[in-house]
Simulated scan of single mutants.
Amino acid sequence: MVFEIQGKFALITGGAAGIGLAYTVELLKNGLGGVVIADIDGLKGSEAVDYLNKKYGANKAVFIKTDVTKADQLEAAFKLAISTFKKLDLVINNAGIMNDANWELEIAINCNAVVQGSLLGMKYMGKNNGGNGGVIVNIASILGLQELDGCPIYVGTKHFVVGLNRSFGTPYYFNLTGIKFLTMCPGVTDTPLISEASKFALQGYPDIGKVLAEGLGSLPEQRPEHVAIGMLKLITEGENGSVWVAEGGKPIYEVQIPERTSLRKN
């Protein structure tokens, strides 16, 4: 199913800066009709909207301060999209943190809020609820496809996103809602994480900050714009339930999750 960006309307969480803002810019450049940016940072959100509306046209972007861990605030962002644009076609659940030092918040943002955003997307876009269907992209990470000793809880949250999306991306949900679920797994993109790794590592373990920095440093780096270009391809061409990697500034590629096999003899 090819999804045309032209004239569509989107909601992006964590869209005020970094990769989230890069997604917004790339989509507006390619004809997105409008976007609601939901972000906890009020200052960056206002700055982003001012910039986007000057560059791409008045009222193309709307900001709402949103703590994605609060279900009522997240739903308010969806309601704003509907009231502003009269429809919603695309949701990117991008908000996320790497912070094993505060793993309760990490799970709340990386897992719980992604579930909530997915369910709200189905509520407001699903054909079974009077919507027109659409696309939901949930952001995992390259670490949703591998292990890394320096941030085991973060890795676990991103494996969660991959499993969640592959399950929502089955024919049952698509036939019911008309919504295509896609997973983006960016590689290392926000390079300051490497230099500040000791702040975000799981606490109480010797040299864990160094271990995390070395683990992240072993992975190829890229700019947010590289991921954003890949996001455009993912949204327009990706098949329902598919999982894609954007790493090292190279073109994105789809990964196939191996089928279960048993290595143990009965």
Score class of each variant (00 low, 15 high):
residue 4 E to Q: 12
residue 5 I to S: 07
residue 6 Q to R: 15
residue 6 Q to F: 07
residue 8 K to S: 10
residue 9 F to V: 07
residue 10 A to H: 02
residue 10 A to C: 07
residue 11 L to R: 01
residue 11 L to C: 04
residue 12 I to C: 03
residue 13 T to P: 01
residue 14 G to T: 02
residue 17 A to N: 14
residue 21 L to M: 06
residue 26 E to A: 10
residue 26 E to I: 01
residue 27 L to Q: 06
residue 32 L to S: 06
residue 34 G to Y: 01
residue 35 V to N: 07
residue 35 V to K: 07
residue 36 V to F: 01
residue 42 G to D: 15
residue 45 G to A: 12
residue 47 E to P: 05
residue 47 E to T: 06
residue 50 D to V: 12
residue 50 D to F: 08
residue 54 K to Y: 03
residue 59 N to F: 05
residue 59 N to Y: 06
residue 60 K to C: 05
residue 60 K to H: 10
residue 63 F to Q: 02
residue 63 F to Y: 14
residue 65 K to D: 09
residue 69 T to W: 02
residue 70 K to D: 15
residue 73 Q to F: 04
residue 73 Q to M: 14
residue 74 L to K: 01
residue 76 A to M: 09
residue 78 F to C: 05
residue 79 K to A: 09
residue 86 K to P: 11
residue 86 K to G: 13
residue 89 D to C: 03
residue 101 A to Y: 11
residue 102 N to T: 11
residue 104 E to D: 15
residue 112 N to L: 09
residue 114 V to G: 08
residue 114 V to H: 09
residue 116 Q to F: 06
residue 116 Q to G: 09
residue 116 Q to A: 13
residue 117 G to L: 00
residue 118 S to K: 04
residue 119 L to V: 12
residue 122 M to N: 12
residue 122 M to C: 15
residue 123 K to D: 10
residue 124 Y to F: 11
residue 125 M to H: 06
residue 129 N to L: 06
residue 137 V to G: 06
residue 141 S to G: 06
residue 145 L to I: 08
residue 147 E to R: 11
residue 148 L to K: 09
residue 149 D to L: 12
residue 150 G to T: 08
residue 150 G to L: 02
residue 150 G to N: 07
residue 152 P to Y: 02
residue 152 P to Q: 04
residue 154 Y to S: 00
residue 156 G to E: 09
residue 157 T to Y: 00
residue 159 H to L: 05
residue 159 H to N: 09
residue 168 F to W: 14
residue 169 G to N: 07
residue 170 T to G: 15
residue 170 T to S: 15
residue 173 Y to D: 13
residue 174 F to E: 15
residue 175 N to A: 11
residue 175 N to S: 10
residue 180 K to H: 06
residue 180 K to V: 04
residue 182 L to A: 04
residue 185 C to E: 01
residue 191 T to H: 07
residue 196 E to Y: 07
residue 196 E to C: 06
residue 197 A to T: 03
residue 199 K to M: 13
residue 201 A to H: 10
residue 203 Q to M: 10
residue 204 G to Q: 05
residue 208 I to M: 15
residue 212 L to C: 11
residue 212 L to V: 05
residue 216 L to A: 04
residue 223 R to S: 14
residue 226 H to Y: 13
residue 227 V to Y: 04
residue 234 L to R: 00
residue 240 N to F: 05
residue 243 V to K: 00
residue 253 Y to S: 14
residue 256 Q to P: 05
residue 256 Q to A: 15
residue 260 R to S: 14
residue 261 T to H: 13
residue 262 S to E: 15
residue 266 N to V: 12
